[in-house]
Design a protein around this nucleic acid. Structure first.
Lengths: 256, 256
DNA sequence: CTTGACCCTCACGCAACGTGAGGGCGCAAG
DNA sequence: CTTGCGCCCTCACGTTGCGTGAGGGTCAAG
């Protein structure tokens, strides 16, 4: 195909020429080649790569981390697109949730309902990067933690032993909850609280920031929205994904 | 109600203590009062204001502009919430659109369909602030332009006469298109192209950046998603909102 | 050749905080 | 009273992702 200049790519994609320069500088999106005149020229491969970059940016991922993801060994574009699809679907759900929050706020201001303070912020994502990383960590929680997760200061500062301990801790919590399910404890049973309390602390630690109740409830939605999570929890015990998510939500509700 | 400290607000809302400090510094969210100990204490009013701030942030609005919006004379919280609701609903639609873009990319990579380059970026919002401002400008296009729009460099640099000219230009374009509709020209009629061409240039000028075809098509969706827009176009002529949006989409499609 | 659009590199500056330093406050336990 | 811990404060450096403008070269059309 005919190679495109920065202006043409900018028009196609909506990003600025300056941004394309910047992406070249930091090495995240190199032009296909440089002309004798010093001009940058882009091709089909670059356009596809740019798409990946922009969708990640849309999801709030830092450029440095985007590069790591795209350049990871074994990167598979189709697989990446499917992952991104999941995330985008979750974002759509989250915005729908924000609409609900506003509806409830309006009803509250008009005296029709009573709304707790924490509900004001339900659906607001304080940090998409942290959420994404939590997602990744959870996804690879069986010990295969991508390098991106290691960039997280809190986690990165742990020794290998400590990191292993975190993984074991999660496993322990999940196994405990699964056992509760096997024994027929209903979601919302107070006897699950200690485990959920530990789980929420685990999440907050991984996030390096507080995990307020509504964020914890939101995380439960995230779990259910991601096929990877569902599959992983179902592997622990059939029906566990829904059981865990419901438990988290009820627990979160009780905290508010 | 009991006043809350920064840690408590942070936990409720998910923002950091540092951010709350920052918001106080820049005057966008003042605490209800300062204790004798120098501590910040927040109340119900501050929590509601913070909600407004965070939703605007969620929609990509700069903090400085958020302050202007919230502190505008005649600010009405219920009205603001309804506006935000519209925007959030549109964002949910946009993310759903991104999902479609990915599905099509996957199909394209698997050789099932043919995809044009510009389609790769359909649904990606290069600049939410610009989009929001375009929305505001369009909303107040009858001459009542909020101060936020004046902060836009390109527009701000125009003289009052020139700004008036821009408003007249839009009116002229819209009237021309409405006339086309009244004469029974179908959407997609080539005779509408000059007007649509001028319209798209108008949008790009207002945006201060290019308006690629898919962004133009996306703008049409934005128009239909906002009750204010629909009402405004219907006021020009019954059925005009849909006619304009369809014309824009067909025109955009032809440009790709 | 001139003009206008587009290309380049260079570099300052900004927004929105994150992070750490250094130190005070409040409460409960010893 | 002392200590320890969690939380509060201000101060200030630094990061990320560009926007913007300066100064100058390239290309195509008139």
């Amino acid at each position: 195909m005919k190679k495109l200049t920065v202006k043409q790519v900018a028009k196609l994609s909506g990003v600025s020429v300056r941004a394309l320069h910047h992406y070249d500088e930091i090495g995240i999106l190199r032009p296909a080649f440089l002309g004798e005149n010093g001009y940058r020229y882009y091709g089909e491969e670059e356009l596809l790569r740019l798409q990946q970059i922009l969708i990640h940016r849309e999801l709030g991922i830092a450029l440095g981390d985007i590069a790591k993801l795209i350049d990871a060994p074994g990167f598979d574009r189709l697989s990446a697109l499917r992952q991104q699809r999941e995330r985008l679907a979750a974002e759509a759900i989250r915005f729908a949730q924000l609409v609900t929050t506003i509806d409830r706020t309006i009803a509250s201001l008009q005296g029709e309902i009573t709304m707790k303070n924490a509900e004001l912020y339900r659906g607001i994502s304080p940090d998409k990067q942290a959420e994404y990383e939590a997602w990744l960590i959870d996804r690879y929680g069986d010990g295969v933690v991508p390098e991106i997760a290691l960039s997280r200061k809190t986690y990165a500062q742990l020794s290998a032993d400590e990191q292993q301990a975190m993984q074991s801790k999660l496993q322990e919590i999940e196994e405990g909850l699964a056992e509760g399910m096997r024994r027929g404890l209903p979601t919302g049973s107070p006897s699950l609280d200690p485990l959920l309390h530990r789980h929420r602390e685990w999440v907050a630690f991984m996030w390096g920031r507080p995990c307020p109740p509504e964020a914890y409830a939101g995380l439960a939605d995230t779990y259910l929205a991601h096929a990877d999570f569902v599959a992983r929890y179902e592997a622990i015990a059939p029906g566990f994904a829904m059981y865990l998510a419901n438990s988290m939500k009820v627990f979160a509700h009780r905290l508010e």
